[in-house]
Simulated assay, not measured.
Amino acid sequence: MQLVVGYIATPSGDDGLALGIRLARSLNASLSICMVIPPDRTLPIRLPDDPGYDDALVEQAHQWLADALGSVPEDVSATAHLSFHESFSQGLLDEAARLHAQAIVVGAARDGLLGRHAIGTVTSELLHSSPVPVALAPRGTRYHHTRRVREVTCAVGTRAGADILLRTAVRSCGRMQTPLRLVSLVSIEPHHDLRGEPGEVRERALTHARNMVEEARSRLDHGVATTALVADGDSVESAVSTLDWHEGDLILVGSSRLAQHQRLFLGSTAAKMLRVIPVPMVVVPNSDRHLDD
């Protein structure tokens, strides 16, 4: 299993690398640390007495990658790659395709609050085009010392792609031997089968979550704990804010139904969840290609 970390020599890059290390260790996966610079930086190294900016940047990029690689613990298999592309996001996508990676990991934008997510241009492009899951590290992940994923939360629903999301969560938890928590957000379910009086809506959502947990349990290895609960509120943010989170937790959400075939598209619900969730989020596409190792 291969994970690609989109790396830049900034605190954001270090956050993404820290999450990549945690995921690689938990999943027994290999890590590819990838830095992307424009192709016009590929000129040969000039003479020492005539250093050029382009050449210096390439040399510096290799040094940044070497430093990043040196910070990876010995128990995690990792390599470093320098790629050349006008678009950082497309360069990462190309690298992920070349390596047959199962996910891409990135850090938050530098203007985000500590412990919260912030979506920059590169991340936004990935969240609207990637054919594989994208893992988002909140700002400050580099300060956490959790070695492995503690628990996986899966936001279940009734939309198309829910089965792929569940299978991804189940498979990930089975591989990591990590507990799975299924959550149904009743305040934002748009489908007619969950409308009605508030009490009835909540009970239907709870029944749905219980059905999903039984399906998940049937696919999990024995000994992996699975729980289900309902989070409700007046808004997506208020519903999600009722959930308890611990260091080392991770949440999986599905791609919007508006996504093109085999591509991600961050929906409004997931975008609202990002505002209040203090743990890494993995956005899963409505395609099962990433489930093929």
Rank of each mutant, 00 (worst) to 15 (best):
R195C: 10
L180C: 12
M1I: 09
R195N: 09
S30P: 04
W245Q: 06
V5A: 02
A271V: 01
Y53Q: 15
Q102E: 06
N211I: 12
R181C: 15
V132Q: 03
G223H: 04
G52I: 06
V106T: 11
P131K: 14
E215H: 11
E203G: 12
M212I: 08
G267H: 00
H100N: 15
L92R: 06
G91Y: 01
S71G: 13
S187D: 14
H191R: 10
I37V: 12
R150S: 06
V36Q: 03
H62F: 03
A231E: 15
S184K: 09
H191D: 13
V152C: 11
L57P: 11
A9C: 00
H100S: 14
V152R: 03
F84M: 08
A18M: 02
Q60G: 01
Q90G: 07
V4C: 06
S83C: 11
V224G: 07
P133Q: 09
A24Y: 02
Y143P: 01
R210F: 01
L264M: 02
D249T: 03
H128A: 08
H246A: 08
H191Q: 11
H81V: 14
M1Q: 10
K272M: 05
H192L: 11
D234P: 09
L182A: 06
L65F: 02
G140K: 01
D193G: 04
P198Y: 15
R159T: 10
G233W: 07
A137N: 00
S218I: 15
A103P: 00
P280N: 07
R257K: 15
D55P: 02
H261C: 12
G91S: 03
D15I: 01
R147T: 10
H222S: 11
L92V: 04
L114H: 00
T146P: 04
H85A: 04
V36F: 00
Y7Q: 00
P11N: 09
H208V: 10
E95A: 12
